[in-house]
Design a protein around this nucleic acid. Structure first.
Lengths: 145, 145
DNA sequence: TATGTCGTCATTCTTTTGGGTGATTTTGGA
DNA sequence: TCCAAAATCACCCAAAAGAATGACGACATA
């Protein structure tokens, strides 16, 4: 996002410089101002629209994904904001599907103790006391489908 | 969205007209072009950003009806088809909210044993072995929000 | 009245979860 | 190469959840 703004500014500056330079070179007719003005306006409007869309879509992937989304992505800012590791989230989604710890363990080819550790840490980070609560909170946070 | 584009166009046209008009009126200095150009560019860039955000956020109000529904009704055919009693469903929704049996008991002013009975029966009818599974199935069936 | 459903509650026992602690190995990045 | 985070596992203990069974009262209805 930062570098987009930089690009935007660079393009803008370059364009202005170019136009100003062209002023001293050729075809500076009387009415060219309106033409150039319109041109600049159009270009910047397009750039602005492009930038605006980028800003709006990069920020807040919020409410738009959630509803049906066969392509659900738990992501990601939220997960990292809570320091929840990918593995913990993976366990969490299986918890949300109603699996027991031992079922999760055998599905992921690890011991049940490991699953319990992941669960405990995830619950901690979510502020949940029970797995049902963790699921509920996880869904609110957009971590779970 | 349509009228936003119209507004955008109107403002743009008005601005250009104004600038063109000002050309015939006052302070048309030699180097004013760069200034005006920059001004127009900035204004249109801002407008573009604004428009772009609007477009990006207003776009796709499509699939969004079902999910949130502050007016969720668990109903009903499904519930009766599964022989789940209203009380059982009531307990089930509290389970889905992450409450423990004792919390549910005190919220409904009954004993924890009663809650356990309701849970067991509800799980049976849903074909669930765990409460997390019951929640998952309940949501699939449209019994839980 | 007899029957059936629903909601309520208890008791016993087993399984599942969760908390706490400590330890080892992998791994990704400075 | 070295460190920190992540993933793995174990052990113990307590709490919560669940299964099974039996029971009782209220209520509607056949």
């Amino acid at each position: 996002m930062k570098h987009q703004i930089l690009i935007f500014g660079a393009i803008g500056g370059l364009l202005i410089t170019l136009l100003k330079w062209s002023e001293y070179r050729f075809l500076v007719v009387e009415h060219s101002f309106a033409i150039y003005g319109g041109l600049v306006a159009g270009i910047f409007a397009l750039l602005g629209i492009w930038l605006g869309r980028k800003l709006a879509t990069n920020r807040s992937p919020d409410i738009r994904q959630t509803p049906l989304t066969l392509t659900f992505t738990p992501d990601r800012n939220k997960r990292e904001a809570l320091n929840i590791t990918p593995r913990e989230l993976e366990v969490l989604t299986l918890v949300a599907q109603g699996l027991s710890n031992s079922e999760i363990a055998s599905r992921l080819f690890v011991s049940e103790n490991t699953i319990k550790t992941h669960c405990s840490r995830a619950f901690d980070k979510l502020g949940a006391k029970r797995r049902t609560q963790a699921v509920q909170i996880g869904k609110e946070f957009g971590l779970l489908p």
